[in-house]
Amino acid sequence: MTNHLKRTYVSLMLSPFFSQIGSAIYVLGLNWLIVKSTGTTQLLGIIEGIGGFAFLIGDLLVGLLVDQHNRKYVLIWTDIIATLVCVVSSFLINNNTPQIWLLILITFILNLMLALNYPAAKSIVPEVINGNYLQKFNALSNTFFGLANIIAPVIGGVLLAINGIDFSEFILINAASYFIALFFNLLITYQPTPSVKNHQSESFLISTISGFKYVLEHKKLLLYMTSTGIFNFVCAGFLLTTPYISSHYFSKITSSYSLFLICAAVGGLVGGLWLTVQKQKISSNRIFAEQICYGIILILG
């Protein structure tokens, strides 16, 4: 393996790792700030709901960007925009009575950049990594991603325990994480394949319609997307209640919320490590069976 390929492999793993650390710390700080300020999750739900709409817009735009533009440039520009938004917002935010419109705007833009960045990174992987190592690389990448979700609550818990810490510091940490991710994305050695270079330019509407047609023509893909969407919907509601529970029932233990996030992330890390040593290919039936198990566990809970 050449040094260029090694550098690209490492960069494709570390870039989402660092950006996820910052994003998780930002969300942790946001959740805690809103719940502590208002005593309810209603406002948090509104912010997260509008932020979720950014993911929808990003999902509609990303196919057009990834198919018709250099994917490395998509990674770089989304990181630059996210960094600038965080830096500027850290100076504008009122830490005592935070402006709701500003929190909505920050969350919306960051979610939009994430919705464009992550698929662009994933679409580069098959072009630079041999198919025989693709599943192992994805498992390692997901493990690093899970590790970020463990480190972030630890850092967030320490920050929450510090007297005088402001939300603007959480935003600046997020800015630093995006800047580090930008550095690693610049190290990626990538040239678009001829199919990407020669792809005929399409309008947003035509590209979206063709994408929906492709999904409808592949029933397994449609089933998988539907089941994953339902799962994420349920999971979002579950995660939304956790800062409220932590604040109202475990308010004397400042590390309770970060401890919950650490335990959840450990589960993801264990799953990722297990996938790295697994040689059997993942099947759709197995994914559906696992989701049934998750449902049973949540019902019992």
Rank of each mutant, 00 (worst) to 15 (best):
S201E: 15
S227G: 12
L259F: 15
H199G: 07
E202S: 14
L44A: 02
I104E: 07
L298F: 13
Y190R: 01
I46M: 12
I297A: 04
A24N: 10
L114C: 11
V128H: 02
V266L: 04
Y294D: 13
F108A: 02
S210E: 15
G164Y: 08
V277A: 12
I171E: 04
H69F: 15
S247N: 09
A121P: 04
P126E: 05
I206P: 11
G39Y: 01
A82G: 09
I21G: 01
Q42F: 06
N185T: 06
F204Y: 10
G51N: 03
I173Q: 06
S247E: 14
L61W: 03
G237T: 00
N117P: 10
K281G: 09
C263D: 11
G157S: 05
F233P: 06
L56F: 15
I165C: 11
A82F: 13
K36L: 06
I50T: 01
V88I: 04
P126F: 04
T254V: 15
S284G: 10
A161C: 00
T40D: 12
S89H: 04
F233C: 00
A175N: 00
P126K: 00
K197E: 07
I188T: 02
V158W: 07
L56W: 14
F212S: 08
Y224L: 15
A264L: 14
S210H: 12
S251I: 05
